[in-house]
């Protein structure tokens, strides 16, 4: 599902004359198979989010290649990446990233609107997914009227609505209490088992790491295997 070859990345900071280079990733190799749940841990600032952004196509790696679902996306322009992301990747951000002026249902509907799904079908799909994330009682609520856990579920519903084969999640449980966290984890496991969705989850949470088939760690810009077996 995800194949990363020799990906290195550094950020360039400051004005032209006094540029400073912040090296983050060094020659990362990674393969995530279809239907796997992989968790990624590492110290704060170790480059976990950077790697996820590279996989999601938000930033271009300084060097190396990324392929998703067999498609090499490195070097693509923004428009092409956006189209690809819409169809193939569900991205769950650290702080939900819901549009505050839209209701839960409208936020979830957004990807369907973007890919041109007809209105009637959109309504049906949104209703289905709301039931799946147990938010059928709150379709007309605005993000500010929802709890953290509910907002997170709206974000997940939005990531799932187009049935992407891959979900990238950046610390999805970071701001949740342990009960809602447990709910979320069972949802992830259910989706993985029933729909065969692949998950790559950044976390420092042991509970989350526990549901993963494999656990990886980034340290000093290198990828370490912590637990589990590499699928062939």
């Amino acid at each position: 599902m995800i194949t990363i070859k020799q990906v290195s990345h550094h950020y360039t900071m400051g004005k032209k004359a006094k540029e400073t280079i912040v090296p983050v990733l060094h020659g990362i190799d990674l393969h995530v198979g279809k239907g796997e749940i992989v968790s990624l841990i590492g110290k704060s600032g170790s480059g976990k989010s950077t790697l996820l952004h590279i996989i999601g196509g938000f930033i271009q790696p300084t060097s190396g290649e990324v392929a998703i679902n067999g498609t090499m996306i490195t070097g693509w322009d923004e428009g092409r990446l956006a189209d690809f992301r819409l169809e193939h990747i569900g991205y769950i951000f650290q702080n939900f990233q819901l549009i505050p002026s839209m209701t839960a249902a409208q936020n979830i509907e957004l990807p369907l609107i973007l890919n041109g799904t007809p209105k009637q079908k959109r309504k049906q799909k949104v209703e289905d997914i709301l039931r799946q994330v147990e938010l059928e009682a709150f379709p007309e609520h605005y993000p500010s009227e929802l709890s953290g856990g509910q907002q997170q579920r709206v974000a997940i519903a939005r990531a799932l609505i187009l049935d992407p084969p891959l979900i990238l999640a950046d610390e999805p449980t970071g701001s949740l209490d342990s009960d809602t966290e447990a709910d979320l984890l069972s949802l992830i496991r259910k989706l993985n088992k029933q729909a065969g969705i692949t998950f790559l989850i950044i976390t420092h949470d042991q509970e989350v790491a526990a549901i993963a088939d494999r656990q990886l760690e980034i340290r000093d810009g290198q990828m370490l295997k912590v637990k589990g077996v590499m699928p062939v």
Binding site: E78, G79, R85, L86, F93, I99, S101, L114
Partner: peptide, 15 residues
């Protein structure tokens, strides 16, 4: 911010 979110989801810049 809304534009950023839409683009993150997969809104084409052309759109």
């Amino acid at each position: 911010p809304d534009i950023g979110i839409m683009k993150a989801i997969g809104a084409n810049p052309k759109t």
